[in-house]
Design a protein around this nucleic acid. Structure first.
Length: 643
DNA sequence: CGGCAGTTGTCCAA
DNA sequence: TTGGACAACTGCCG
């Protein structure tokens, strides 16, 4: 069992296994690597990092979900060996881990590679500190099917911006590995005592930069001690974070993830015929999708386990044959969903820290949305964000709080706040509405709200999908806009989701469930809900705003600016787009006056019109640049300089 | 360079 | 239910 201790001349193998977003025992390549060292002791450590408590937007449901995942993992470890459990150490890993290395005489630190966002930067710091302390660092890819570093290299070092380029790169990579079995034994803990008392935080909490201050109702006490209030390295309680109880009905943990996977895969027909766009965003109890994304996010579910279980299920499916519906293919099928996840991961990896915002983001189209992030002279994001256009601020808040007066939008936003999960197409509906569809508000605002509420928040998929939906990257057909009534009606004419999450509307007849303001007053009275009084009137004219958004998008596309372009960096981009929009409006007006038909084939007419907008805007942009401060390079060219 | 496909639009006619 | 018009974008493939 402990070969290293049997030979006294060899130094003991004492492993610190650093759990992060790999909260599982099954199919964990990093854990497998740790156990393969045949260590004398393993310290399974979670560093409870103030960065996530204060510098990330994390709502009560995701914190609750995480805590459940940690508890489940700890119980599973103890089930393998009564002399072990998850050790939660409170404080930043960059300061906490070097203490543990010394106090616990660690020889190896092992962890699963995290290539995204803050996690990637944190790991660079920690591995440098470990190397300085003479500790062996073993890091293993485990949360993606492919090694994204390799994929990006195969794509010429550039971000993968389409499934086509993703697939082209990936087909040269080895096939995803089969899942690894969960360990059946586990080495014990070493002595966890300390030679001295440590503070958990080196710097006092600065509540002015605490992104979660708004949702706390009491003091944060989780950093009062290094090893928890009982001194036993226990999993924190939600009230130590200053938060109240979670509201979601979704439970966390590896056991729950595997249970859900088993239930879903038991219906082989459904697995084989799964087609994402056909699943209904209006179903919640139970949903038509797997609802496994939060588990993948925290690593409670191995992506290899999921991939191969689905594959094997379809392979053993006997529903095929003559006259039978064949199994769904990528990208609509279940495996296809994993490719989107990995494509966004690879894009984030290639683009780096600018991926989550517009400014300096080379893959993100610059569009003059309202309420964008703002940056100071030093290039740092201004926190808190200065208030923008009052009407946009009002729309944003109404959207966030689910009181836009559009039942479909409001029901989804309320479901998101309550449950921490909404169907993918529901995300499309509300994201399109907030950005290119109706409100013309920056996707950064929407992403921020999702950051707070989603259980499955991810630094790659969340910004990636917001850029997709706002037609800023990955997706370009901005004229395809989801209707606030027509879209949900395709899936559910009875309005189940609305009735559940907007109970004040529950007695409206089906006919008016997605547009209750159109119901005659007597219908409203008999439903016990007067629109404008018990439920808001629509806050905007969705058809008129859609037209306005489309014109503005057209101007933005014609200019072809990206977040990393000079005009965005020096702040001249806004006035360029504003002028383009003014011209576009003038063009539309002159069209109306002259009774012209808007058609691409009609060209060479006098005066600006939508048909020759592109040329006009480009001419205008060139003039502007000659007088202005911007640089011409990369301005009129639609292609970014990505190398 | 032209043609065509792109996980997930809407509206209306047949 | 299905098909085409609407109005129209980019990236990839040949």
């Amino acid at each position: 069992m402990r070969p290293s201790s049997s030979n006294p001349s060899e130094p003991a193998v004492r492993v610190l296994y650093w759990f992060r977003t790999d909260l599982r025992l099954h199919s964990s390549p990093a854990l497998h690597a740790a156990l393969a060292l045949q260590p004398e002791v393993i310290f399974p450590v979670w560093t409870w990092d103030p960065n996530y408590v204060f510098a990330h937007r994390v709502g009560v449901n995701r914190f609750g979900f995480l805590l459940e995942c940690m508890q489940d993992l700890s119980a599973s470890l103890t089930a393998l060996n009564p002399n072990t459990k998850l050790l939660v150490v409170r404080g930043a890993p960059q300061t906490v881990l070097p203490r543990l290395f010394q106090e616990w005489r660690i020889s190896h630190i092992v962890y699963e590679i995290d290539r995204a966002g803050y996690g990637a930067r944190r790991d660079l710091q920690v591995s440098a500190l470990a190397s300085q302390a003479g500790i062996k660092v073993i890091s293993v890819v485990g949360n993606t099917l492919y090694d994204l570093k390799e994929v990006v290299e195969l794509n010429g070092g550039k971000a993968t911006l389409s499934l086509a380029s993703w697939h082209a790169a990936v087909k040269k990579c080895p096939q995803p590995a089969r899942p690894l079995p969960a360990p059946t034994t586990f080495p014990p803990l070493g002595d966890t005592s300390f030679s001295q008392a440590y503070p958990s935080l080196d710097v006092p909490i600065d509540y002015s930069t605490d992104l979660n201050n708004g949702i706390r109702n009491r003091e944060v006490t989780c950093f009062d001690t290094f090893s928890g209030p009982k001194g036993d390295f226990g999993v924190p309680a939600i009230d130590e974070l200053g938060l109240s109880r979670p509201t979601t009905s979704i439970r966390g943990g590896e056991s729950e993830a595997l249970r859900r996977l088993a239930v879903f895969c038991a219906d082989k027909d459904r697995v084989a015929h799964f087609s994402k766009p056909q699943t209904s965003p209006a179903e919640f109890d139970p949903p038509e999708t797997t609802l496994l994304s939060p588990f993948l996010k925290f690593g409670c579910l191995s992506v290899h386990e999921f991939f191969w279980r689905v594959r094997d299920t379809v392979a053993s499916w006997e529903g095929g044959g003559p006259g039978k519906k064949p199994a769904t293919k990528e990208p609509e099928n279940l495996q296809g969903q994993l490719h989107f996840r990995e494509m966004y991961n690879a894009a984030e990896y290639a683009e780096g820290i600018h991926f989550g915002r517009i400014y300096k983001n080379s893959v993100c189209r610059f569009i003059d949305w309202d309420l964008r992030d703002e940056f100071g002279q030093d290039g740092a994001k201004i926190i808190p964000r200065p208030l923008g256009d009052p009407r946009a601020e009002e729309w944003f808040l109404a959207w966030k709080e689910g009181r836009t007066g559009f039942p479909w939008i409001d029901a989804i936003m309320r479901q998101l706040r309550q449950e921490g999960w909404i169907h993918h197409l529901a995300r499309h509906s509300v994201a399109c509405f907030l950005t290119r569809g109706q409100c013309y508000i920056s996707w950064e605002r929407g992403a921020e709200v999702f950051d707070e509420y989603l259980l499955d928040w991810d630094p790659c998929a969340n910004p990636g999908n917001w850029m997709w939906l706002s037609a800023s990257a990955f997706y370009h057909m901005y004229y395809r806009v989801y209707g606030v009534q027509s879209f949900p009606k395709k899936y559910d004419k009875t309005g189940k989701l609305v009735r559940k999450f907007c109970p004040e509307l529950s007695k409206f007849p089906d006919q008016f469930i997605y547009a209750p303001h159109l119901a005659p007053l007597e219908v409203q009275l008999s439903a016990g809900c007067v629109i404008g009084q018990d439920y808001p009137m629509p806050m905007l004219d969705d058809v008129a705003e859609k037209k306005r958004c489309m014109t503005r998008l057209k101007v933005a596309y014609a200019l072809g600016l990206y977040g990393s372009d000079g005009a965005v960096l020096d702040g001249t981009a806004d006035s360029l787009l504003k002028e383009g929009y003014r011209q576009a409006l003038a063009g539309i007006k002159s069209d109306k006056k002259q009774g012209q038909k808007k058609s691409r084939t009609v060209s060479g007419g006098d005066g600006p019109s939508p048909s020759n907008l592109t040329t006009d805007v480009k001419t205008m942009a060139t003039k502007e640049l000659k007088h202005g401060s911007g640089s011409i390079e990369g301005f009129l060219t639609k292609k970014r300089k990505r190398d």
